[in-house]
């Protein structure tokens, strides 16, 4: 009887492990939910265009990751994108006039939010917002602007034969 109980226990552990593996695949690997707790404080930044920024993208200052993006939404009145940043509690001395820009790591890399510190003596608190922002560079717009500049502004002088 003892061996049977041990055997049943082993099978029970095996089945539980298998179910736990599926649970992990569902929760952690696929995008069903984000169970990881978030201890940072939240600040918001408004951008004209966030480009390809995704939730959970890193937030850096001076190249060091200090938090991540926890939400991206559209303000229905001003049509601006509102990005919610969660900053780790130990970086609690960000000046209120810091600026945020959406940057790309590498040529094909993902986009992240880069913060530049300002000079104010007051520091951002939970719920604060960044006023100075720079949108993501959208390649098509950039090329379009270059083309219109080339067409209207500086026409090359007509060559005379």
């Amino acid at each position: 009887m003892g061996t049977l109980k041990k055997l049943e226990l082993a099978v029970g552990i095996f089945v539980a492990l298998g179910l736990a593996a599926f649970f992990m695949l569902a929760m952690k690997v696929s995008n069903i939910a984000d169970l990881g707790e978030d201890k940072g404080y939240k600040i918001t930044a408004r951008f004209e265009n966030v480009g390809g920024l995704k939730v959970r993208a890193p937030v850096t200052m001076g190249g060091v990751r200090i938090g991540r993006v926890v939400g991206i939404d559209l303000d229905p009145r001003s049509y601006e994108a509102v990005v919610i940043l969660s900053i780790e509690p130990k970086y609690d001395r960000l000046p209120t006039d810091s600026s945020a820009s959406i940057l790309t790591s590498g040529v094909l890399g993902e986009q992240y939010v880069g913060l530049e510190p300002g000079g104010m003596d007051e520091y951002l608190k939970s719920g604060g917002s960044l006023k100075l922002t720079q949108s993501a560079l959208v390649l098509e717009k950039l090329i379009g602007r270059m083309l219109t500049n080339a067409a209207s502004g500086d026409k090359p002088p007509a060559k005379t034969p």
């Binding site: 690997v29 995008n31 069903i32 995704k54 959970r56 993208a57 991540r68 993902e110």
Partner: peptide, 25 residues
Amino acid sequence: VDSGAFWSQMQAAVRLVDDVINGVV
């Protein structure tokens, strides 16, 4: 590799029904 990017890019790309259910199960 950044741990946040590792998981977030994975979660953005892996779909529950199309990949996990159809694939593994």
